[in-house]
Design a protein around this nucleic acid. Sequence first.
DNA 1: AGTCACCTGATT
DNA 2: AATCAGGTGACT
Length: 263
Amino acid sequence: MPELPEVQAVAERLRAAAPWARITGFGRFRSTTMTGGRHAVGRRIEAVDRRGKNLILRLSGGWFARVHLKMTGDLRVLPDARLRPQTVRAWFALDDGRAVVLDDPRALGRISLHPEQEEQELFRHLGPEPLGPEFTAAALLASARRTARPAKLWLMDQATVAGLGNIYAAEALFEARIDPRRPAAQLSRQRIERLHSAILRVLNSALASVRAAYERPGAFTEGEFYPVAVYGREGRPCPRCGAAVRRIPQGGRSTYYCPKCQK
DNA sequence: AGTCACCTGATT
DNA sequence: AATCAGGTGACT
């Protein structure tokens, strides 16, 4: 599921479940799924934030839970902790009977508990929030000049900008008409400006789609909730020029792009 | 800078 | 049986 827009929607949906009761216990699928769970017991959730693709559950008494959904995770509230699907890999039981659960068929998602002083260190490797004030074309240009990597791999690096993944990196490059294989350091200032605004457009429009889908149960399982131009569309016509969309391996995963209009 | 391990399930 | 999957950190 989750790149930045999906993680943001998860955060917003969780916020709607406030006010929170106290955490009375926790459970986990394996010891690696959640670490430090005991530090959450007796505390209350005070806020839900997002940093890149991470969720932060701020707890009373100066602690927080960092949740990473990885490939297939979802974090939500169930009305009854005892009625949890098999794919729930970790949960916090609340004293009103509800539970906050990490539902993750693939079991790659992780939760860890930390004192608030550790937050800076924990997220030190993350670049600017793309929808925040620090993400400017100038900052993106400076980052591009410091790397030898192809544009797509550079964009997916969480140190470049926090929250883009395989889908939205490909979509932003399509939108900006940039070949994903082109070394980032070669991109002109004008192209970087185009890319910067493409990232904002793609993420904002995905966010609108994801929010709409969340208000309609089942929308995610129906497949297309975001109108992708190239991702997963190998061989289908480019919506801009009609040429066949191509799929190439980059960094061990698939990149989709239009060979005719991305230069 | 590139590859692999972590996991499970869907698809070919 | 093999390959692929919206992620990332730990290895060569």
